[in-house]
Amino acid sequence: MDLYELLKLAHVGAMIAWIGSGLGLLVLFAAAEAWHDEGDVLRVVKGASILGPTLSVPSGLIVLATGLGLAWGGGYGWEAWIVLSLLGVTAVFALGAGVVGPRLEWATLVWERDDDPEQALACGRGAMRIARLGQVIQFTVLALMVTRPGWEDVGALTVMAVLAAVAGGLAMRPAPGSAEHA
């Protein structure tokens, strides 16, 4: 196994952890919302505030570093799938570090310190809605890496952009049956 194969293994493994951790939390959050159990919803929000910096961020950084190493080692230039993937990863980090993470931390603080579950729920629900958008972007990055469209693949890029936009729009809506939707 050479260095390129080791980078590829680390890249795929980190991508699984990066996407899987977020997806798992979103499923737990949706289940807690569906059961109308505010305590469980707040515990998932707290768990997300812990899991983000301890698993999601490090695995995302490994995805980025190994991806750059693979692009350089593979002799790839500024192809569409590389540029768009880098933009997607940047967007996910910006959403996570700039919006989702701080809101999850604030919701946890308001719940534990101020004993204000209503405000904590509102803040946590908003953060998780934005986290769903981040998950859509992550899956779009994954699709780009698998399909590797070039700049000349206008049809494929257009279809991917439309699907991502529709999924992103749906992700930003409150989930049916959730307390937020009611």
Rank of each mutant, 00 (worst) to 15 (best):
M1V: 12
M1T: 09
D2W: 11
D2Q: 04
L3G: 10
Y4G: 02
E5S: 15
L6S: 12
L6T: 07
L6E: 07
K8H: 13
A10P: 06
V12T: 13
G13R: 04
G13N: 06
M15G: 14
M15D: 09
W18R: 02
W18D: 02
I19M: 12
I19K: 00
I19Y: 02
G20H: 07
G20N: 11
S21Q: 06
L23G: 15
L23I: 05
G24T: 10
L25D: 10
L25A: 10
L26K: 04
V27M: 04
F29G: 02
A31D: 12
A31E: 14
A32R: 02
A32S: 14
A34W: 10
W35D: 15
H36I: 03
D37W: 05
G39H: 09
R43E: 15
R43V: 13
V44H: 09
V45S: 06
V45R: 00
K46Q: 12
K46F: 09
A48T: 11
A48E: 03
S49L: 12
L51C: 12
P53G: 15
T54D: 00
S56T: 13
S56K: 00
P58M: 14
S59L: 03
G60C: 13
T66C: 12
G67M: 01
G69S: 15
L70P: 02
A71H: 07
G75Q: 03
Y76V: 12
Y76C: 00
Y76K: 03
G77N: 12
E79C: 02
E79P: 05
W81Q: 04
I82G: 12
L86F: 15
L87R: 00
F93Q: 01
F93P: 02
L95E: 13
L95D: 09
G96Q: 06
G98P: 11
V99I: 13
V100K: 02
R103A: 14
E105L: 12
W106S: 11
A107K: 05
T108W: 06
V110C: 10
E112I: 07
D115T: 14
D115V: 12
D116K: 00
D116Y: 10
P117A: 14
A120L: 06
L121Q: 09
L121F: 07
A122Q: 04
G124M: 05
R129W: 08
L133K: 01
Q135G: 09
V136H: 04
I137W: 02
L142Y: 07
A143I: 03
M145C: 01
G150R: 06
E152G: 15
E152V: 15
D153R: 03
A156W: 10
L157C: 10
T158K: 01
V159R: 00
M160L: 15
A164C: 13
A165P: 04
A165T: 14
A167Y: 08
A167H: 08
A167T: 07
G168S: 13
M172N: 05
M172K: 00
A175C: 08
P176V: 13
P176A: 13
G177S: 15
A179W: 05
